[in-house]
Design a protein around this nucleic acid. Structure first.
Lengths: 332, 332
DNA sequence: AATCGTTATAAAAGCGGTTTCATATCAGAT
DNA sequence: ATCTGATATGAAACCGCTTTTATAACGATT
């Protein structure tokens, strides 16, 4: 059974297609009885309007694109979840675009999304070129997440990385640390940079501070392991570590475990992100980004843009908050 | 600047729209010189064909739907990643549908996907009704993952849960365990059931076996914690635990940590799934599903169906494999 | 010289909706 | 009795692309 069209319905109901369309969209005048007939015909034929045709005819596609660098990074599923929740509540679908950080895939996806006439795009990217974006935005609204471009007239959502980082370091200080190292993220990522600024803000002027207390990694678990080993070698008297993200903090934890160093007794560890799954043992203290809120806000603002409502083009900054668990403070 | 249409191009190139379409699709006769003209016109107008119109006119949408219960469960991002990789390599897009396990959302999404004329659907669901699915499959090819429906003529991909579970328990036995508990997953999930069958297969006839060695949970970390506490209370002499998935194994680990019980010295723990991120300390021994392969195979088979190529409608079972890490065997 | 298969292109008919415009009815106002 | 505005409905154009059908030119066959 091929799917029924609006014309089939109109025939069965003995009305014109225009009338069926009106019923479909609850728009324009339709007689009480006519409406009933049409509705009945639809039911009888299992009519399901063709979105494709509908968007061709000028309505939107009710679809938004979500471009992220890597769905395996637990941060992004949570963002995706929020976006999907908000989108779905407004009758929108989400097209998933995993760019694996490749600029080429990014470009191809952008083209593809435009071809598919998506109504809007949410992008998390460390490599996107602002000019390409601005080109696009004439036709399709865009919202950026995670990595803002403050100097361009576009909407970005991110958390206050600098303040969050300072929060983390101050917590370590309050818990009694007197020599705190930092495992910072990739140099080109703004968020990583901001977090290291927060670290320096909180302890850069301490008498014990030296630049060699900072190691570097690419946000992966293995980087955290390696960096932790480096730090301990350089500073055996280290008693606190602030990692630029949770994954590297986990890596640090694993390295300390292998070295036989007790956490939190000998060294305290704090991460950044607060990804939903709290899987480590002992449980990782961290600075939690409001990940879900970031995603939800991004989608809400995108919806505003899509509907042509006003929305200020600026960087929306959300606060991170301290989540004290077991790697900085002994239980009981 | 509104986007250029095929008519704009035809006008600029001084040919008919049919010719432009032929150039676009490399199909039918087109003169050498004409083609050059058309190509030039396309470039000049930044022409980008409208996928919407194209699919209305009978071509596919080059889009597949991916329905999963929860993107926050780390199993699914990995599946999604695989599916996206394969899809994207063949010029397909993926529509993300997070059902949060709700049958209602499932139904709505299925409708939506059909309305959008997706070319195929990959579904992971514990609640889907086979009849609805069969209805659909006349129009749209479907591939199931994770939770097979063996009694229906459709393609499912899953791992051999029973053998994998037996593998896990035998590993514990080999490592010297003499009393092994099991934290099983949700009763209605086939995979969880299969895994508990594997457990019983491997040790159900051991002299020490009693049914109270089996606790139950819903695949979440907290369930693992609670179940572990139950088991230890019932059997203080327990020295091994096989959890039905990694999340519950992590929960078990956390519970043991709080009880001050050493892992793996006093109690050994093994999980199931092998999700990409190995975050626990000590690192979790587990039975790894070939998650990426499951996703990739699902998408490959779906592509075959879409292209009308032959594909056997059966359950494709992939082997799980033991991943020995630190929760069952002391390092060095 | 008549016939035929290739090659090259255009005109037009969809695909399944939306929307504009025209037409018709009917109740109330004048 | 006529006019007017609200209510109802249908015919047809249109969205941007694909595809079928028609037409024409051309070299090769017979």
């Amino acid at each position: 059974m091929a799917l029924a069209t609006i014309r089939d319905v109109s025939k069965l109901a003995g009305v014109s297609v225009a009338t069926v369309s009106r019923v479909l969209n609850r728009k324009g005048y339709v007689g009480e009885k006519t409406e009933q007939n049409v509705l009945a015909a639809m039911k009888a034929l299992k009519f399901r309007p063709d979105h494709t045709a509908r968007s061709l005819a000028g309505k939107g596609s009710s679809t938004v694109g979500l471009m992220i660098p890597d769905i395996l990074n637990p941060f992004f599923p949570e963002v995706a979840r929020a976006i999907e929740d908000v989108a779905s509540a407004s009758g929108f679908n989400v097209m998933l675009c995993n760019t694996v950080g490749s600029m080429d895939k990014e470009r191809r996806y952008l083209d593809m999304l435009a071809s598919k006439r998506v109504d809007g795009i949410i992008i998390a990217s460390y490599t996107i070129q602002p000019e390409r974006l601005l080109d696009f935005m004439d036709d399709i609204p865009v919202v950026l997440i995670d990595n803002p471009l403050p100097d361009y007239p576009l909407i970005s959502i991110a958390c206050n990385n600098r303040d969050g980082a300072a929060l983390a370091v101050r917590h370590l200080l309050e818990e009694g640390c007197v020599k705190i190292g930092h495992i910072r993220g990739p140099l080109q990522v703004t968020a990583a940079h901001e977090r290291s600024l927060g670290y320096e803000e909180a302890c850069g002027s301490a008498p014990w501070f030296v630049p060699s207390l900072i190691a570097q990694g690419n946000f992966h678990i293995e980087d955290g392991q390696r960096a932790m080993l480096e730090l301990i070698e350089r500073h055996p008297d280290l008693d606190g570590v602030f990692a630029g993200n949770d994954l590297m903090a986990i890596g640090a934890l694993q390295a300390l475990y292998k070295l036989g160093i007790q956490v939190p007794e000998q060294v305290k560890v704090i991460g950044f992100d607060g990804v939903a799954l709290n899987m480590s043992v002992p449980a990782l203290t961290t600075v939690a980004q409001p990940i879900y809120s970031i995603g939800a806000l991004a989608m809400e603002l995108l919806l505003r843009l899509i509907r042509g409502e006003s929305a200020e083009r600026k960087v929306y900054e959300l606060d991170a908050k301290l989540l004290i668990r077991e790697t900085t403070r002994k239980l009981r």
